[in-house]
Amino acid sequence: MPIVTMTVNGRTASADIDPRTLLVQFLRENLMLTGTHVGCDTSQCGACTVHLDGDAVKSCTVLALQAEGCAVTTIEGLGAPGLLHPMQEAFREHHGLQCGFCTPGMIMAAVDIVHRHGNELSETLIRHELDGNICRCTGYHNIVKAVAEGARAMAPAMGAGGTGSTGLRTAAE
């Protein structure tokens, strides 16, 4: 079987895998990073969203072998307990979830939106850009509020000092 090597959350990960192994399987079953969820498994719901070389992708629709040499960031790599990423903190603050199943994918997608569109996001843009993520609890209202707030909190000026006025701290992605 072929060997795949990639960087996951800053650490080198390598394994001998069946070529059919999906990136999400590799993360969950080889690396035990179970924060990335499998919802629909048909690239509709976005629960499996991770960053591949900085871009949000659906890890249920990428072969692990395609990520050879790439840098992958999962929800575990975004923040840490007690040191949440501003986007995670905003989801907590605004209760941008009900059951929480879609949350890791929502947060990874939200950070990608900020990377592409900056820190001031309109509600319309957020709703449009969350097209690839489905919440079955229909909790979009608070999710949208959380993304807007998280985006503002990710602004460099606020993050640089460690804690901003909202008490948010940065974690290295």
């Binding site: 690239s43 969203t49 949000a56 992708v57 659906k58 629709t61 990608d112 850009e129 097209d131 690839g132």
Partner: peptide, 9 residues
């Protein structure tokens, strides 16, 4: 085309 994640791949 598709959604943002699909467009990234």
């Amino acid at each position: 085309i598709g959604d943002p994640q699909v467009r990234n791949r």
